[in-house]
Structures are given as C-alpha cells and as structure tokens.
Write a protein that binds this DNA or RNA. Structure first.
Lengths: 186, 204
DNA sequence: AAGTTACTTTATAAAGC
DNA sequence: GCTTTAAAAAGTAACTT
C-alpha cells in the first residue's frame, strides 16, 4: 500500500537567521578557511559546511541564509556549526538566534505516467503553465497549501514554496485527488 | 499649468510613438517570418491589450511586441518556435519566452500547448516532401501522442522526428541533418524521438 | 554513438545596484 | 529586475572521447 505521500523526500531547505551583530566580511573571509567572498559579484560571503552539507550566505548585517540542507534539523545543525565558528573567532553571536524556514523543496512520485496535455486542460489553463518547448514540466500553482508543483510525464513531481514539512504532504494529497477526479491518473 | 499641458502632450506623443514603433516592429518581424496579415492584426490586438493593462512597465517594448507576435501565431494555429521568432527579433529568446508566459497569464489568453502537427506542413514543404509524407507524419504524431509519448517533449523535435520517420516510410528519405536544420533541433533529439515513435507505431 | 557537463523551470532569503 | 546559493524533476544542447 504505497501512497504517493510516502514517496515524499525533502531535497532542499532554505532558512534565514541573524546573529545580531555587524560583520567585517573582508576579515571574516581571511579567518574562515574555505570561505568565498566576491563583493563585486555578490554582497554575501559564501561558506559551506561538510556535515551536514549546506551552504550559508553571510551578510555584513549579520543576517545569514542557509540553503542546501536536506532537513530542518540539518539547517539547525549547519547553522549551529557556523555560530560556533564565529564564536571561535571571538565574534559575539546571540545565544539562540531565531531560525526561520523560508522554503522547502520536495520531490515525490505519483507512481503513474501523466498526460501533461490533458492535465493542462483538466487542471485549467488559467492555473497552469505548460510550455514543453521551454521546460518539460507542467507548473501548477496551488492555493491551499500555497505551493507550486512541477509535474512531469513520468509522474515524478517537485513541490516548492512551502514553509512547513506538512505542506508537501497536503499538496501531494490534493494533487492526487484532483488528478484522480479528472480520471487522468492512469 | 502650461508646462503641465506640454508634458501631457509630450507623454501622449511619446506613447503614440512607442505604439507606432511596436506595431511597426510586429509588422517587420511578421514579414520576416512570412506569417499572414491576419496574424499581424491579432498580434497588434494583443499588444494593445497588454498596453492598456499596463503590462509593459518594467519590460521592453520590443520584448512585448515579439511575445505578442509569438502568441498570435499560436492563437491562429500557425505557430513559430521561440527559436524562429528570436531570429527575427532583437530580444533574446529567453526574454521572449518569459514575456510570453507573463502576458499570456495576465491577459488570460489560455492558449493550449502547441500541437506538433501544426509544424508538419511548413517543415515538410521546406524539405520538398509530398502530401503523402505529411499525412504519414501526422498519423505518427497522433498515434505516439495518444500513447503518452508527447508529455514534456518539445513540439518541434516531436514533429521533426515524425517527418523523418515518414520520409523513410514513404521512400522520400531526408537525412536527420536536413530535417534537424529546418526544425532547428539537433540530430540527437530526432534520433531519440524517432526511436520512441516507430516503436509506438509497431514498427521496429 | 556514447558520455559528460550545463542550461531550461519552480521558490526563497539576504544587500545593493 | 539582476546578482548568489541549494536541490529535484526531464528535455535539449554542446562539447569531448
């Protein structure tokens, strides 16, 4: 009894936080081995953690964006490592900076091939963007939960834009119901 | 008060000039693409609607004009690929696609996905292929699309493969390179689609 | 012809142009 | 709008071997 919802895998979590302290990124780039800082290109300093694997964008304001983590726990772990590294450099970091999850990207498998042409019309052309000349996936914007789903001919899907783990779960249940209702889940 | 008036006239003139420019660009590109006058008229209607709905703000006039023409071709059932439209526009292909998706959404054009069959007459005649090849290609497209092979595939590549297959079946062989050139896809794409299609047709 | 790499789409924060 | 970062999906393209 495998349901599509059981196939959901979180692929990427984006979160933001801040240490409540201004930073000298030039100096930080020197002191942090492996840091990438090209202010001409982008105002943030890029720092990657190995385990868990993630990338952090550190800004002059002390605000930080963490991306690439595979779970919300990994986001906290990766940022924890960065906070410690900063403290090691005698940079004062708030005791427990608030971490806000901004986006979760998940993938799932509906287990059946999809006729995207029929689906585009069935879901309603007004809510759908399907331009196979430009991209093979059908883009469906869902209202509740507020996420965007990319659907492919293979039945594999991507859910993005959600902020809670449950958003992907609900989105999959909803889209399966809608596609079944259209009789298009072969 | 006089200055305000002059400003109004100036902006009105500027608006008129911009509209004139956009419509003349639509005309120029339409001629280069060889699309009928009716398509140019549809394109100018779409452009004027975009203008009235204030969709041009933050976008280039030429980009919206090109996207309007691309949309008009589709609406009239004689689509051009983004590649073909980009060739006669000074706007990059990526921007044309992005602008098309935007105005299509905002104006509620609700255009159905491009049907590969719509490319068959034009590509086939450019290759000098017979009616027989065209109807065979059309049949191949119908059969393989019905078997779900079209999902996610580029309409031009799909049409190109069917034309290539049909040219073989009708003893009017064209090389993959020749077909690839008129459809502006790679031989690799034709080969991949061709293999799936002949299998769907029960040949092999 | 096969293999690799890279680009297309979606969302999202950050600071600045 | 753009810049950068990450990740998935599948198609297409441009290289190299």
């Amino acid at each position: 009894m495998s349901s599509p919802a059981d196939s959901i895998e979180i692929q990427n979590v984006v979160a933001s936080t801040g240490i409540g302290q201004e930073l000298d990124l030039e100096a930080l780039a020197e002191d942090l081995p492996g840091a990438d800082f090209n202010p001409d290109n982008f105002p943030g300093l890029v720092y990657r953690t190995q385990s868990p694997k993630a990338a952090a964008l550190i800004f002059r304001s002390g605000k930080i964006v963490c991306t690439g983590a595979k779970s919300i726990d990994d986001v906290h772990e990766a940022l924890g490592i960065i906070f410690e590294k900063l403290r090691d450099l005698t940079i004062p970091v708030e005791d427990d900076p608030e971490i806000t999850v901004q986006n979760i990207v998940s993938s799932a498998d509906l287990g059946h091939n999809l006729n995207l042409n029929a689906l585009a019309i069935g879901l309603g052309l007004e809510d759908v963007e399907y331009e196979p000349e430009q991209f093979p996936g059908l883009v469906y914007r869902m209202d509740e939960p507020d996420v965007v789903i990319l659907l492919f001919g293979s039945g594999k899907i991507v859910i993005t834009g959600g902020k809670r783990t449950e958003d992907a779960q609900e989105a999959v249940e909803q889209i399966v119901e809608r596609i079944e209702g259209l009789g298009l889940l072969s | 008060r006089l200055r305000k008036w002059q400003e109004r006239i100036r902006t009105k003139d500027a608006g008129e000039r911009n509209l004139q420019f956009a419509l003349s660009e639509v005309d120029r590109m339409a001629s280069a693409l060889g699309v009928p006058r009716s398509v140019r008229e549809v394109a100018s209607v779409i452009y004027r609607r975009a203008l009235n709905e204030d969709l041009i703000r933050g976008r280039s006039i030429e980009g919206v004009a090109t996207a309007a023409l691309y949309a008009a071709c589709r609406q009239e059932g004689i689509p051009r690929s983004l590649d073909e439209v980009a060739e006669v526009s000074r706007v990059p292909q990526k921007e044309i696609g992005r602008t098309y998706r935007y105005i299509s959404q905002e104006l509620g054009l609700e255009l159905k996905p491009v049907d590969p069959k719509q490319f068959v007459p034009r590509f086939a005649s450019e290759l000098g292929l017979s009616e027989e090849v065209q109807s065979k290609a059309t049949e191949i497209i119908d059969v393989s699309a019905e078997q779900g092979l079209l999902s996610g595939k580029s309409p031009t590549g799909f049409a190109a493969a069917a034309i290539y297959a049909a040219s073989l079946l009708c003893n009017e062989k064209k090389t993959q390179r020749e077909v690839a050139d008129v459809a502006q896809v790679t031989e690799v794409t034709i080969r991949n689609r061709y293999q799936e299609q002949i299998e769907a047709m029960g040949f092999r």
